[in-house]
Design a protein around this nucleic acid. Structure first.
Lengths: 192, 192
DNA sequence: AAAATTACTTGACAAAAGGCAAGAAATTAA
DNA sequence: TTAATTTCTTGCCTTTTGTCAAGTAATTTT
């Protein structure tokens, strides 16, 4: 049974300095999955049980604000780990949804599989920590990037870091992610 | 040499379900330190080598924006772990400063001590992960809380989550943390 | 292909927040 | 305790962004 997990193996090797054979063993624990545009990896009120390496495609996380509006809280591009940290690690029901913006493919493991790897593969501990640290840093950068910046600067910033999103996600996803209204984003685009 | 690390022991036990004896052994690896108001735990351009349990006092992290203004990026209240994740885990020079807002006391370990604990005390791995997850969640909540909310709502939110900060930190720290000008915060306070 | 739905744009006006500058109040240093 | 510095407040005016509503364009469904 030949599976093409090369992208995942490379991702692991780019994340932590371990022997290739180790990376291959870790990658082989992952299972391939596919998502169609609009499909959910996680629905609100469920427990996130997928630690998902996104090989191809775009995804987003979103939740509903007090008025019932969808707020996109994050975008993911290929070659990233996608999961909802609160629900996944604390085993609680998620407020957040994870949805495919385009058709997606990648590889997943469950919470139990992840913990088995933690016990059996010391190299995977470092990988897990590195991913957590990386995502945490990304979140902090987003905080900083949202404050003391105009809507236009925030848009330009997203454009340079995740241009695929700007090109392929509907305007309303982007607007709510940037914390502005659809109208404002539309006007902003005309200006540019 | 009797040291009062009860608060730290309780903090560990509140974070992960481990035997008390384990928590005590972990706590005993930590060293007591004191900071005077205004002292730095970490200065920009240095490598963060303190994983610090803040027992008493208030702290903040800040950096300089492109125009040279101080931007407060986070506040810490007592009974929290304080460190700069990027610099500490990736061993790189920090852009961020960590400073005491009031006199502070607590217990610290170095990066090497932390890794020794990781190797020798499996319970500490869970603790470390739990802290990382907790801080990550806090950061994500802050993201969500800053977007699609008026300055007043953001202020009220900080007031209810960290009222000590509102009472003891200078207005300009709070204003830059909320992403508003000193004037706007001053006017806002008058209104309330 | 027509109808229905969703996505995006635009205009007119309103609200929120910023810029700048002057002065008052509080804190720190001499 | 006086002087110096820092912190906070306030007025006036500008800029940014929001609200609401109408209309066009694009996509999806039937």
């Amino acid at each position: 049974m030949l599976e093409k997990k090369n992208s995942l193996i490379h991702f692991i090797l780019d994340t932590v300095p371990i022997p290739k054979s180790e990376a291959e063993e870790i990658a082989n624990t992952f299972h391939p999955i596919q998502l169609k545009k609009g499909d959910f990896l996680l629905r609100g009120n469920h427990i996130n049980n997928d630690y998902f390496y996104l090989e191809k495609g775009l995804m987003r996380t979103f939740l509903f604000d007090l008025k019932g509006n969808e707020i996109t809280t994050d975008f993911f591009i290929e070659n990233n780990i996608v999961f909802e940290v609160t629900s996944f690690f604390n085993r609680v029901h998620s407020e957040t949804n994870i949805q495919a913006i385009t058709d997606c493919s990648g590889f997943r493991i469950s919470y139990d599989e992840l913990n088995t790897l933690f016990h059996n593969k010391p190299a995977f501990r470092d990988f897990g920590r590195a991913i957590l640290v990386k995502e945490f840093i990304t979140s902090k950068k987003r905080n900083y990037g949202m404050i003391n910046r105009t809507a236009e600067e925030r848009y330009q910033n997203l454009l340079s870091s995740k241009s695929q999103i700007i090109q392929q996600a509907p305007l309303k996803y982007i607007a709510s992610y940037l914390g502005i209204t659809d109208s404002t984003l539309s006007r902003l685009r005309r200006k540019i």
